[in-house]
């Protein structure tokens, strides 16, 4: 199994639980670190991911209490240490300008959390599939 560590920054505990459950259902057993705010999530990224053998993968919600997910994305992608870290943005909005902005800033995948649960679960399971084959570069 790919030893990639998953960092999930999501302030809604319910969403985090649903995401984690569906990732597990997809058969992904990688370690998942949950953070409810951007500051502690970024701190973890700085402290742990450089040392982590398989690198990290960031699952990022855009609505966070302490800073906007867009800012987190910009920070990660402009930091030479984390630039290679894949970022998957998960959010409730399907606003086209926001999606475009995320891709412009270097987000790798953008997933809308639909209210319709089947679609949501499907998206996460497909993400799990994606996680099981993705090769994340170890950080220098």
């Amino acid at each position: 199994m790919n030893p990639v560590s998953i960092v999930l920054i999501e302030d809604d505990d319910g969403h985090a639980t649903l995401i984690e459950r569906n990732i597990r259902r997809a058969g992904v057993s990688n370690q998942i670190h949950r953070f409810a705010d951007a500051t502690s999530g970024l701190a973890h990224l700085d402290a742990q991911c450089a040392a982590h053998a398989g690198g990290c993968l960031l699952l990022l919600d855009l609505n966070l209490p302490d800073m906007s997910g867009i800012d987190v994305l910009r920070k990660v992608k402009s930091d030479p240490n984390h630039r290679a870290t894949p970022v998957i943005v998960l959010t409730t909005t399907d606003d086209q300008t926001e999606i475009q902005k995320c891709y412009e800033l270097g987000c790798n995948v953008y997933i809308t959390k639909p209210v319709e649960y089947e679609r949501f679960a499907n998206a996460i399971r497909q993400l799990g599939l994606f996680l099981s084959i993705i090769q994340v570069p170890a950080q220098s």
Binding site: T93, Y117, F120, A121
Partner: peptide, 15 residues
């Protein structure tokens, strides 16, 4: 946008 977020939970946990 913000009303949708709890709905994801309601729908998700109902499922």
């Amino acid at each position: 946008h913000d009303l949708r977020s709890p709905l994801v939970n309601v729908m998700g946990f109902a499922s």
